[in-house]
């Protein structure tokens, strides 16, 4: 049997999961969970590029989700832009902001990016929270309908909002994964991974370290911004929490839990941390405790994250 390249294998696995999972759904509520997994997964793939490939940590990525989400909420009202186009605008704004934040910071080595992004995330959150004349403040703001369901209804296709966003989310995730996997195997991707291993070594072979890091940061910001926009359009309502510090930490945890080095790992991390809280509601007050214990166990026993650790064990088992 001809071996699939890891790139094709990841894409086929993601597509198969998206296509087959609905067969197991007992009710259409599970489409909502699926959609959330895909959208979170998209953010996390962005972070895989930044954390896994380039070895940089961002503690403020939710800020970009906030920019994407609020652009979708505000641009249709104030500029008359269709929400789907507003998503593109949000991504552009996020890219410019990431470039402006990253450019001075990423010339330095060390954890300056983590500190700077922490401040950036809090700044976005505070603006969304306090400028209530524009953003609706802590009570949040409604987002216009993208009108796709009405369009489908004209063709006699009736889908619930959750179902629609399940398929949109799956499509976005596949596109995101495809781009990330191509990046991974491109000269840029190899350069990123080399500076992850050793910046000095990367520099000696002629890699512009600062520029590479900046590229990774801007690309990951765009991923998270698009995911934020999609979340806003799916919920048709958004509060400043989307840009909150906890959301940043949540995204980073998903990345590390699944295994920051691999695109598929990011998807697994997003799946677990999105679905598990729903599963654990049965335990009521022990929900958070169990979530914490599971994450600690993974970090202690599977240090590289779930997917790389398990893949390695399988390989070792197979070669015996």
């Amino acid at each position: 049997m001809a071996r699939l390249s890891p790139r094709a294998a990841t894409l086929i696995a993601l597509a198969a999961i998206a296509l087959l999972a609905p067969l197991l759904f007992p009710s259409s509520f599970y489409y909502r969970i699926g959609a959330l997994i895909f959208i979170n997964g998209l953010s996390v793939i962005g972070l895989v590029i930044l954390v896994g490939f380039a070895g940089q940590v961002s503690l403020g990525h939710a800020g970009f989700a906030g920019i994407g989400a609020y652009t979708c909420a505000l641009a249709p009202v104030h500029v008359g832009l269709h929400p789907a186009l507003a998503m593109v605008l949000g991504a552009a704004i996020s890219a410019v902001v990431a470039w402006l934040v990253g450019r001075p910071i990423l010339r330095l080595s060390g954890h300056f990016l983590a500190v700077a992004t922490l401040g950036f995330g809090i700044l976005v959150y505070m603006v969304l929270n306090n400028e209530s004349w524009l953003t609706g403040g802590p009570d949040g703001i409604a987002v216009a309908d993208i009108g796709l369901r009405d369009l489908l209804r004209d063709y006699d296709i009736k889908v619930t909002a959750s179902q629609l966003w399940y398929w949109l989310g799956a499509a976005a995730l596949l596109v995101g994964a495809f781009l990330a996997l191509n990046l991974q195997n491109s000269p840029t991707g190899r350069a990123l991974r080399s500076l992850h291993d050793s910046e000095v070594a990367a520099r000696t072979i002629g890699i512009d370290v600062a520029r590479m890091k900046l590229t990774a940061f801007v690309v990951s910001a765009v991923y998270t911004s698009v995911a934020g926009s999609m979340l806003a359009m799916m919920n048709r309502f958004v509060t400043p929490d989307i840009a909150g510090f906890m959301h940043s930490v949540e995204l980073l945890t998903m990345t590390v839990l699944g295994g920051a080095g691999a695109v598929f790992g990011g998807f697994v991390g997003a799946s677990i941390l999105t679905a598990l809280p729903q599963l654990l509601t049965v335990f009521e007050e022990y929900e958070n405790l169990l979530l914490g214990v599971i994450m600690m166990l993974v970090m202690i026993f599977l240090r590289e994250g779930l997917v790389p650790s398990i893949a390695r064990r399988l390989r070792r088992g197979g070669s015996k």
Partner: peptide, 16 residues
């Protein structure tokens, strides 16, 4: 008090 979570639970209460 998380709006996104509340939205998910609302869907769960209705659909599931």
């Amino acid at each position: 008090a998380d709006a996104n979570k509340a939205r998910t639970f609302a869907t769960r209460m209705v659909e599931d």
